[in-house]
Simulated scan of single mutants.
Amino acid sequence: MTIFIYLIIMISFVDTFSQLPIMSPFAQSLGATPFFIGVVVGMYSLTNMVGNIFSGFWIDKEGTRRVLLFGLVASGLVLFAYAFVNTVPQLLVARFLHGLSGGILVPAAFTFLANRGDGAKRGKTMALSGAAVGLAAVIGPAFGGIVTSKFGIEWVFIVIGSLMIVTAGVTRWLLPHTPAQLTEVKQAGQQNTTSFVGLLKVLPLLYAYIGSFSLMFAQGVLAYMLPLKVEALNYGSALSGMLFGVFGITAIFIFILPTNRLFDRFPHEYTMTVGMVIIGAALFLLSMVTGQTVMYGIMMLYGTGFAFIFPSINALIVQHTSAENRGKAFAVFYALFSLGVVVGSFVTGVFDLSADTSFVVGSAVLIVNSIVIWTLSLLALKRESLV
């Protein structure tokens, strides 16, 4: 059962990652101006945040199974619709709907996984979910690029849309009905607040949300600026793909090897902040180097930091929520995921920063936010010791 949820997570992210190398050229082929190409690319992330929030309410009200089914079917149908797009306005509508459906699907999958997980091994469980995302990050762009070049862009949408519909059918047959209010033993640290503002007032959840935004801010900077740096150094566009591949494969190995036990051995906020510092250091180093070999090493370092952050954030959310509010908690998490990517790429673009300057800005955001989390956690420990 748990393995099937990992499969749903991987398929969901293959859907997202497969479109990274093809969406801008697709919009351009329809006659989109550079401005509208940006709108087309960003539309998914913006409506994804709306879908995330809506999904959180729906999950906590009716359970995860129905939300999962809706998200899979809706995403599959929207993907089929892409194959019939002939104009830029039609593409914008498709991206709008796709962001909504994807935003509904992903929090449901992670909430279902969290509700079924072993509390003593939540870090390992979430590390394995990170491996599913990492595999998608490696498979998705390659699949999108290869299928487009061999058969045409419409077949990317048709194949993944068909996979979504088939997965929905298996989900309906395989997954049990999950009532909105699950019976679970309340563990220390779990909170039952059901409002979004209330969730933000729970310090460990606030740490997780700061971490998720920081991680994806850095990811937005990296996705935008690493290819530009590689191009400026005249290394060829293939190097960018290989560097991202090294980052993904490094993270996957840390997720699946015995190193994943680290996430249950140490407090999750500590492993998360260590990961933030590692990525901050990697971005800073990336701003200083020009050699290919060193860049590979830095991307391995970046992948290590990502592997520390992702499961730690998820485990913090599971640890400090209950079945009654976990859907909303994951919804906020993934909304901030999308927001981080948008803000990271927007800041570097609107201020016309160079690649190296952008890496320094990303590094500063990671380091400063890790210090904020450490300071807040130390103050909280001090208050508890005085009680």
Rank of each mutant, 00 (worst) to 15 (best):
V85Y: 01
T111D: 07
P107F: 09
I22G: 02
L113K: 02
D118P: 13
A81Y: 11
Q28G: 08
G38T: 11
A108C: 08
F70S: 08
L92W: 03
N115P: 06
K121R: 15
V106M: 07
A74H: 00
V73C: 09
M49R: 08
P21K: 06
L79D: 09
M49N: 07
K121Y: 04
G99H: 02
M49D: 07
S45M: 14
G123Y: 03
F80P: 06
G56S: 10
G51P: 01
F70P: 03
V73W: 07
G56M: 09
M43N: 01
A27C: 09
S29W: 07
L113R: 06
A27R: 05
F57Q: 06
A127P: 03
L30S: 02
A83I: 06
A120P: 01
L69G: 09
V41K: 00
A114R: 00
G38R: 08
G76K: 13
F57H: 12
A109Q: 01
R65D: 10
T87L: 13
M126R: 01
G63P: 09
M126F: 12
R65L: 14
T111A: 13
L69Q: 11
P25Y: 02
R116C: 08
G42T: 00
L91F: 05
G117M: 13
A83N: 04
A127N: 03
M23F: 01
F80R: 10
T47W: 07
F80S: 10
L46G: 00
K121E: 11
F35V: 15
V40G: 01
A32T: 13
T33M: 05
F36W: 14
V85F: 04
Q28H: 10
I59D: 02
S29R: 11
I104S: 02
F54V: 15
P107M: 13
T64I: 05
G71Y: 04
P89V: 13
K121W: 00
G71K: 01
L30Y: 00
T33C: 07
R65K: 15
R122P: 03
L92G: 06
F96K: 01
V93M: 15
A120V: 09
V50R: 00
L91E: 04
F112I: 12
V88I: 12
A114V: 02
F84A: 11
K124C: 03
G31V: 07
F70D: 02
R116V: 04
T64A: 11
P21S: 04
A109W: 04
G76M: 12
Y82M: 12
F70T: 14
G103N: 03
H98I: 05
F96R: 08
A94M: 00
L68G: 13
V78C: 08
F26G: 03
V50L: 14
D118F: 12
G51Y: 05
Y44R: 03
G102M: 12
F84Q: 09
K61N: 12
A114C: 07
L97M: 10
K61V: 06
N52F: 06
K61S: 10
A108D: 07
A114H: 02
D118K: 15
G31M: 06
A74K: 00
N115R: 14
L20E: 13
I22H: 04
F80G: 07
A120T: 14
A32R: 15
L100Q: 05
V93T: 14
V88T: 09
V67Y: 04
T47I: 09
G38V: 06
F110W: 10
I37F: 11
Y82R: 08
A94E: 00
L113A: 14
G102A: 13
